[in-house]
C-alpha cells in the first residue's frame, strides 16, 4: 500500500508543473516587478517601496476602487432582487407557475454571450443622437430628447451596472432555484397546513434556508465584480471616460501596463487589487461565520 501511494505524486505532477510555471511564478514575478521601475524594455530598476507609496496616495486608484464597487453594487442589487423575486414566484406551491424551464432558459441567455459582444452591442445601442435605445424611448414618449448615456458619469455607471445585472440575473435565478429545490417540499407543505401565509413562509422558511446559497452568490459575484474589465474597456475604448467614471481597477491596471508602459506600477496596482479582494473575502466569510453561530 505504501508503495502504491507514491503513485499519488505521479497523478498530481502535471498539474503542479503547469501551476508553478504559469500561476505561481508569474505571481512572484509580478511581486518582484512591483518593487521596480520597469517599462517593458531593458532591465527593471529596483526602487523599493516607491510604487506602493504612490499607490497609497493615488487618487485614481481609489476612484477606480469606488467605480468598481459602484458598478458592482448596482449590478448585484438588481441581479439578486430580480432573481430572488423570480425564485420565490416559481417556488410558491400555491401559485404553481408554469413554464419554469422556458423562462429560466430565456433569462439565462444573455449570460452566455461573449461579454465583448455585449459591450459592443450596448456601446452602439446606447449611442446619443443616433442610438437605437434613445430612438425607441423617444418613439414611446418616455424621454423627449436623447440622453447621452455613456457620457455622464452617473448614467454611464448605471448603464454598465444594469448591463451586468441583465447578463447575470438569469444565472443567479438558476442557482437560487437549485437552492430552493434542495429545500424539502415537506417544509412548505407543513407551513401550508399550519396556515402560514405567503409572507410568513418566505421569511421563516425560504429566506433562511436560502442564506448559504445567497452568500455563495454574493462571494462569487463580488470576486468577479472586483475584476470587471471587458465592459468598461470596450465601451470606453479603454479610456475609462466619462471623467474616469468607468475606470475600474483592472482597467487601470491594464492601462498602466499596456497603454502607458508602467509595468512596475501596474504590478503594484495588481497587488493593491489583491489585498482588497482578500479583505472583502475575509469580511464576507467572517460575517457568514458569525451569523451561523448566532443561529446555531
Amino acid at each position: 500500500m505504501k508503495k502504491l501511494d507514491n503513485y499519488g505524486y505521479m497523478f498530481i505532477v502535471p498539474f503542479f508543473i503547469v501551476f508553478i510555471t504559469f500561476t505561481i511564478y508569474p505571481i512572484l514575478l509580478t511581486f518582484y516587478y512591483s518593487f521596480t521601475n520597469y517599462n517593458g524594455m531593458g532591465d527593471p530598476e529596483f526602487i523599493g517601496l516607491a510604487n506602493y507609496s504612490r499607490l497609497l496616495t493615488d487618487s485614481y486608484f481609489y476612484s477606480a476602487f469606488y467605480n468598481t464597487m459602484y458598478i458592482w453594487g448596482i449590478n448585484f442589487f438588481f441581479q439578486l432582487s430580480i432573481a430572488l423575486l423570480l425564485a420565490i414566484l416559481f417556488s410558491d406551491i400555491r401559485l404553481k407557475m408554469r413554464g419554469l424551464n422556458f423562462f429560466r432558459a430565456v433569462f439565462y441567455l444573455p449570460n452566455l454571450i461573449t461579454i465583448a459582444s455585449v459591450a459592443l452591442l450596448f456601446g452602439i445601442l446606447l449611442g446619443w443622437h443616433h442610438g437605437t435605445i434613445n430612438h425607441l424611448l423617444m418613439d414611446l414618449g418616455i424621454i423627449s430628447s436623447p440622453i447621452n448615456w455613456l457620457n455622464d458619469p452617473t448614467t454611464a455607471r448605471w448603464s454598465v451596472g444594469l448591463i451586468g445585472a441583465w447578463m447575470w440575473f438569469g444565472h443567479t435565478f438558476i442557482i437560487l432555484m437549485a437552492g430552493i429545490s434542495g429545500i424539502s417540499k415537506d417544509y412548505f407543505e407543513a407551513a401550508l397546513i399550519d396556515g402560514a401565509n405567503r409572507w410568513q413562509t418566505l421569511v421563516k422558511i425560504t429566506l433562511p434556508l436560502l442564506k448559504p446559497i445567497m452568500l455563495y452568490v454574493l462571494i462569487t459575484s463580488l470576486i468577479g465584480g472586483l475584476q470587471i474589465f471587458d465592459l468598461p474597456m470596450l465601451i470606453t475604448d479603454g479610456t475609462g471616460a466619462p471623467q474616469g467614471s468607468l475606470n475600474t481597477m483592472v482597467l487601470y491596471l491594464y492601462n498602466q501596463a499596456f497603454r502607458y508602459d508602467n509595468y512596475g506600477y501596474a504590478a503594484a496596482v495588481a497587488y493593491g487589487l489583491f489585498i482588497i479582494t482578500v479583505i472583502f473575502s475575509v469580511i464576507t466569510f467572517k460575517s457568514m461565520y458569525r451569523s451561523n453561530v448566532k443561529e446555531g
Partner: peptide, 19 residues
C-alpha cells in the same frame, strides 16, 4: 492549491505576460 484558488486571475498578469 485552495489558497491560490482565491487569488484573482489578474494578479499575475504582468509576470505572466513577461514570462
Amino acid at each position: 492549491m485552495l489558497v491560490l484558488m482565491m487569488v484573482p486571475g489578474q494578479l499575475g498578469l504582468i509576470g505572466f505576460f513577461d514570462l
